[in-house]
Amino acid sequence: MLKVVKNQTAALNALKTGQIDGTLIDQSMYKEATASGLKVVGMRGNTTRLLLTDHQGKKIRALGSLDVRRAMNMVFDKEAIAQDFYQGRADPAYQIFRPGSAASIKDLKEPYPDNVAKAKELMKKAGFEEGFTLTFPMFEGLGMEKLMPVVARQLSVLNIKVEQKLLSGPKAVEELLSGKYPAPLWPLGNYANSLQDINDYVKVDGIWNLSHQPDSTVAKLTEQLSSAQGQEAVKIQQEINRYIIDQAWFVPMAYPDGYYAHSPKISVPRSTDANVLLVRGEQGEDEAR
């Protein structure tokens, strides 16, 4: 039987008192869970990111500026987010693709190092020195409400005001994917096959390319990719990755660990994982890929 508990703290308390057998928890709850005698297994399969899908500035005029999108990347210290916010249970992310996948660029250096002064210069150059407003959709239970103040604080140095819109009810996901909010903060999963990431996040009809705005370079490269094989396919996927990095389509922040805490009275068996996620053991060590 499944029980809906909207708040992660309440869910952990319910687990500790035996009301439920298991629940998802975030990094801040890991030590409390293990100290309470609970078992914890983890998995790394997400990239925390901002999706800047309105590349043409149709809904939010500022996002049509490459300088603005690059400036937004330059006010986040990804190392600090991984170490401080995620308490060391994450790695900084400089690209959206999972390390080891075909599209991932190995040993990629941070393309947009934390540089507030340079970011402000870019905002001024683009004509948006006074900033603008972004509305972030939110779901209860994802843990993003803890990261939101960090993101809002960093964007505020560029005079970007963050507003939150809580989505609920049977049409919440439909509203999220409608394109009404063209720049959400979201912890999206990564596939073992980066072609699926390209299909979902980059192609014009991708479910998470929320604004569905055509791009001639992406169209050309994905057309080439449709018939490419082997190393040629890898080369094109990495070319797509370099292009969306250069165009600042995303603000990747971290590859965090996710955790499932459960009662020691039950077992959580290993299962076949089509996406070959990095599994974390009880103490957080890597067990398999």
Rank of each mutant, 00 (worst) to 15 (best):
residue 2 L to R: 14
residue 4 V to L: 13
residue 6 K to Q: 13
residue 6 K to W: 07
residue 6 K to S: 14
residue 7 N to I: 11
residue 9 T to H: 14
residue 10 A to F: 04
residue 18 G to H: 13
residue 22 G to A: 15
residue 26 D to Q: 11
residue 27 Q to V: 10
residue 32 E to R: 07
residue 40 V to M: 06
residue 43 M to W: 01
residue 46 N to L: 06
residue 50 L to K: 04
residue 52 L to W: 06
residue 53 T to V: 07
residue 59 K to V: 06
residue 69 R to H: 05
residue 74 M to D: 03
residue 75 V to L: 08
residue 81 I to Y: 04
residue 82 A to Y: 00
residue 85 F to Q: 07
residue 87 Q to W: 02
residue 89 R to G: 05
residue 104 S to C: 07
residue 106 K to Q: 12
residue 110 E to F: 04
residue 110 E to Q: 10
residue 112 Y to T: 05
residue 115 N to S: 13
residue 119 A to S: 02
residue 120 K to P: 06
residue 130 E to P: 00
residue 133 T to E: 12
residue 137 P to E: 09
residue 142 L to Q: 06
residue 147 L to V: 10
residue 147 L to I: 11
residue 150 V to D: 05
residue 154 Q to M: 00
residue 155 L to H: 02
residue 166 L to P: 03
residue 170 P to D: 13
residue 170 P to I: 14
residue 173 V to F: 08
residue 177 L to G: 02
residue 179 G to V: 11
residue 181 Y to Q: 07
residue 187 P to Q: 10
residue 192 A to V: 11
residue 193 N to E: 10
residue 193 N to D: 15
residue 194 S to M: 09
residue 194 S to R: 06
residue 198 I to M: 09
residue 199 N to W: 11
residue 199 N to Y: 03
residue 200 D to P: 03
residue 200 D to R: 13
residue 205 D to S: 15
residue 205 D to T: 15
residue 206 G to Q: 12
residue 214 P to L: 10
residue 218 V to M: 08
residue 220 K to L: 15
residue 225 L to T: 09
residue 227 S to N: 15
residue 228 A to F: 00
residue 230 G to D: 12
residue 230 G to T: 08
residue 232 E to H: 02
residue 233 A to G: 13
residue 239 E to I: 09
residue 247 Q to M: 15
residue 249 W to I: 03
residue 249 W to Q: 01
residue 255 Y to L: 02
residue 259 Y to V: 00
residue 262 H to Y: 14
residue 266 I to L: 14
residue 270 R to H: 09
residue 271 S to H: 15
residue 275 N to W: 04
residue 279 V to N: 08
residue 280 R to N: 10
residue 281 G to E: 12
residue 287 E to N: 00
residue 289 R to H: 06
residue 289 R to F: 11
